[in-house]
Design a protein around this nucleic acid. Sequence first.
DNA 1: CAAGCGTGGGA
DNA 2: TTCCCAAGCTT
Length: 347
Amino acid sequence: MRSALLRWYDREARDLPWRRTQDPYAIWISETMLQQTRVETVIPYYERFLSRFPTVETLADADADDLMEHWAGLGYYRRARNLQAAARCVVDEHGGALPDEIEGLLSLPGVGRYTAGAVASIAFDRPAPIVDGNVARVFARVFGIREELRSAPVQARLWEKAEALARGLRPGDLNQAVMELGATLCTPRAPECPRCPLARHCDAREAGDASALPVKAAKKPPKRVAAVAARLERNGKFLAVRRPPKGLLGGLWELPGGDLSPGETPEATASRSLHERVGLIAKVCEPLGSVEHVFTHRRLTLHVLRVKVGPERVRRQGYDAHRWLSEAALNALPLSKIARKAIALGR
DNA sequence: CAAGCGTGGGA
DNA sequence: TTCCCAAGCTT
């Protein structure tokens, strides 16, 4: 299997930006961005991020808003703050060099078993195993694993198989070859078995049920929620607020607002939440429409309103910064996709 | 161990 | 439209 994989990978590997470097820092950034995120989405973010923060020192010293500007739109924003926290740890406690073994890597915030194995094998040529979604799917098919994929025993078995695979020459390329296979041929639906270098070794191919594997329990549907965002204009400037670092969309800027309580109208929510969260009294609320947004665990309807307020000073509660900004300056902030949709609706 | 955490693309 | 999900980690 190893030689078949490596022959195929040497021939077919895609030319990806992080495959043109041996810099452990750059490889770590790429692996973090690639968590739950598609290659095509990551590429432009990776290029911009590495240009702006080319070394672990520049990342450790980055301004928080500058950092989030380079992550805005990529999702799972905790990853960005964990990267910076880890960069500071590398600078302060490892002399600026990324740990070159699993244990040291695992101790960094945001680095779990997968990322530690990826960096150790790809950047440092260690025989470290990795199991991601691709590896799990390929292995489930090749080894004919028909039990539910996320169960503890199946996970343990997948990691054992991965460990056996990585034990040999070119562990980083072997790990990447399995992921590459999962991403390009051994895809969730309609796998291209005739072109697969592992076809001769594959249990599911033999049994004819490759597209039925792996077996996964259904996920719970996202909960429907509703909220308001206020387009609050005063003297030609708009009020922007920054969410606290932890939790949903942490560290990103948006229009002030809040969640609808049961039975509450958007207008009432706007008045109440603006009073509670920025200390302003709404005098006029005019609905501008609504936008839909789906998170992993929430399906949000966001009602956008144009709101007029009195001359009171802003008193924040629950946000960790606020600014009155021109529309151009507002759009230059690190905004989530949903915030961009809300702002676009007001024009 | 389940839940929380984004976004966009394809079927 | 709706669903599934993509190089996971933390709590």
